Amino acid sequence: MAYEVCEAADEVGELNARLRDATPQEILRVAIERHGGKIALVSSFGSESAVLLHMAAQIDPDIAVIFLDTGMLFGQTLDYRKQLAQRLGLTGVRDERPQFQDLAVHDPNADLWKSDTDACCHIRKVLPLDRALKGFDGWITGRKRFQGGDRIRLQVVERGEGKLKFNPLANWTKADIDAYVAEHDLPAHPLVAFGYPSIGCWPCTRPVEEGQDERSGRWAGSEKTECGIHTPRASSIVEVGGDI
């Protein structure tokens, strides 16, 4: 086991050294070519998602794209997901939803978010993603360092849930994102115009004031900054009826 851990660490270190200064497109190409059809891009189809999705579509329009439909997303997000996937020609978008049993046991009234946001995210995002990633050897995220919080230490390549995890946009700034959107005339998420620079589920997402951290509208008023899918956890799958 110790040998496997060291070998995995060496692999991550080698890839980070190789890709530290690479462009997002170069990082994406390495990730896709390295894993072939065994890699998935996880996307919220949020305020900045169009950039990474557009890049991926230029390399492999059939790449698996995992979209976590929590059952509590804004209607605008669901519409944007359909429209953007069609426009970019992405054929492998998969809508992953929480299991009925999980909701029936732990959130029968759809109000768990009021008392325990961590548990709500676990049922509606963490468990569905863990199930969706089975069969894949690696995954790709759209996180960036400029988003703040724990993300300021983000590496280009990590290990997450026992798989290689690529963050092609880790090095990019907000100006880089905006320039790419303008250059390729990518459509914005409809809620961006209403002061939502970061968009999650409607009960836990608020608009932010100009100059505030772009993720300050997520779980506003609490210390929570991540939903849990990017947080190390002891077990990938929690059985229905188990502790959450």
Rank of each mutant, 00 (worst) to 15 (best):
Q86Y: 02
R143F: 09
T77S: 14
L112M: 12
Q86E: 13
R143T: 09
N109R: 13
D95F: 01
R97E: 07
M72C: 00
G71R: 10
L90I: 15
L88H: 13
V126Q: 00
I66Q: 03
D111T: 14
D111Y: 00
F146T: 04
D130E: 15
G149N: 08
C121T: 05
F100G: 06
T91V: 01
Q101H: 03
F146E: 13
P108A: 15
Q86D: 12
P108V: 12
Q101A: 12
C121A: 09
F136D: 07
A85T: 11
K125E: 05
A132H: 08
L129S: 08
Q147P: 09
P98H: 06
P128M: 12
D79F: 00
D118R: 10
T77V: 00
T70M: 05
S115M: 02
A132F: 03
N109W: 03
H122K: 13
L90D: 10
A119R: 07
G149P: 03
L78V: 11
L133K: 00
F136C: 07
D116Y: 06
Q76L: 01
G135N: 10
A132E: 10
A85S: 15
A132D: 05
P108T: 10
G71V: 01
P128R: 10
Y80K: 05
F100E: 12
D130L: 02
Y80I: 01
L112A: 09
Q76R: 03
G89F: 14
A104L: 10
K82R: 12
G148W: 13
D79P: 00
Q86H: 08
I140M: 08
L78C: 00
L112H: 05
L73R: 00
K144P: 01
I140H: 06
R145Y: 11
I66F: 06
D118Y: 07
A132V: 06
G149C: 13
G71N: 09
G138D: 02
G92R: 14
R145A: 12
R94K: 14
Q83H: 14
R131S: 13
F136Y: 15
Q101W: 04
K125F: 04
K125L: 09
V105E: 07
T70R: 02
G92E: 07
F100D: 11
L129F: 04
T141Y: 03
K114L: 12
D69T: 04
H106K: 13
F67I: 00
P108R: 15
R97G: 04
I140G: 09
C120A: 10
F146V: 11
G142I: 05
D111E: 12
N109P: 01
D95A: 09
G142W: 02
A104W: 13
D130G: 14
L68K: 01
G89K: 04
P98A: 09
G135S: 08
W139I: 04
D102R: 10
F136R: 08
A119S: 14
G92C: 10
D137F: 09
L127V: 15
E96G: 04
A119N: 03
F67H: 12
L127Y: 07
D130W: 08
A119G: 15
D107E: 13
R81L: 12
A85L: 08
Q83L: 11
D102S: 12
E96Y: 00
